[in-house]
């Protein structure tokens, strides 16, 4: 198997917690993994991305090659479109529908959604709302990780085990509410994919 994922968002939105969950699950499943991230200037509210590469064979490049991503996983709708050159023809866009507007020329929100809908394979989620409904108002990232998990060939229990591993020291309550958000995202994606 191989799963090349571009994670995208805005500096400060915390995309790295999603990368950590999926990456940790991959490692515990005995897979090879490389994950590159952006540190420095862009973290101050600029566009940020992380390349997550998982494979049962050795991974060479730290960067996902153009046209090779199996998924763009974005916590912000406009940012999901920025990385289309990396998406393979069979790849999925999985994005939060809630915009992060910190620039004066943010495009018309409906036009952004319309562009995403032009892509053959996409799932648009109001992850903020789903997280709230799952009782975890700060769990948007876990909802997105859950939605993405459906498309990564790693057992669900390994994914949830990774959440336990990563958040365990913050207490059982945090683990539970993150798993609840994760499951909400996964169920939503399941329904959408059919």
């Amino acid at each position: 198997m191989k799963s090349d994922i571009i994670l995208s968002g805005v500096g400060g939105q915390g995309i790295l917690s999603i990368a950590a969950v999926i990456g940790q699950a991959a490692v515990s499943a005995g897979l090879h993994m490389k994950q590159s991230e952006v540190h420095g200037m862009s973290q101050r509210g600029g566009d940020v991305q992380s390349h997550l590469r998982i494979s049962d064979k050795e991974v060479f490049s730290d960067l996902v090659p153009h046209g090779a991503a199996d998924m763009i996983l974005s916590v912000e709708p406009m940012e999901s479109l920025r990385y289309l050159p990396w998406l393979s023809k069979q790849g999925w866009i999985i994005t939060n529908s809630q915009p992060f507007i910190n620039i004066p020329n943010y495009p018309d929100q409906k036009a952004v959604i319309a562009e995403i809908e032009k892509q053959p394979k996409h799932i648009i989620i109001n992850a903020d709302e789903l997280a709230k409904a799952a009782g975890n108002s700060r769990g948007m990232n876990m909802v997105m990780a859950g939605a993405a998990s459906l498309f990564v060939d790693i057992p669900q229990e390994k994914m949830e085990g990774a959440i336990q591993f990563l958040f365990g020291r913050k207490g059982e309550e945090i683990v539970k509410s993150n798993i609840a958000a994760f499951r909400a995202g996964r169920e939503f994606a399941q329904k959408k994919r059919g």
Partner: peptide, 19 residues
């Protein structure tokens, strides 16, 4: 080249900014 679709024109640059 292997390349996906170009990013649509509506994608605006998002430079870093003060918190």
């Amino acid at each position: 080249d292997i390349c996906g679709a170009p990013a649509p024109a509506i994608v605006a640059p998002r430079p870093p900014a003060f918190c």
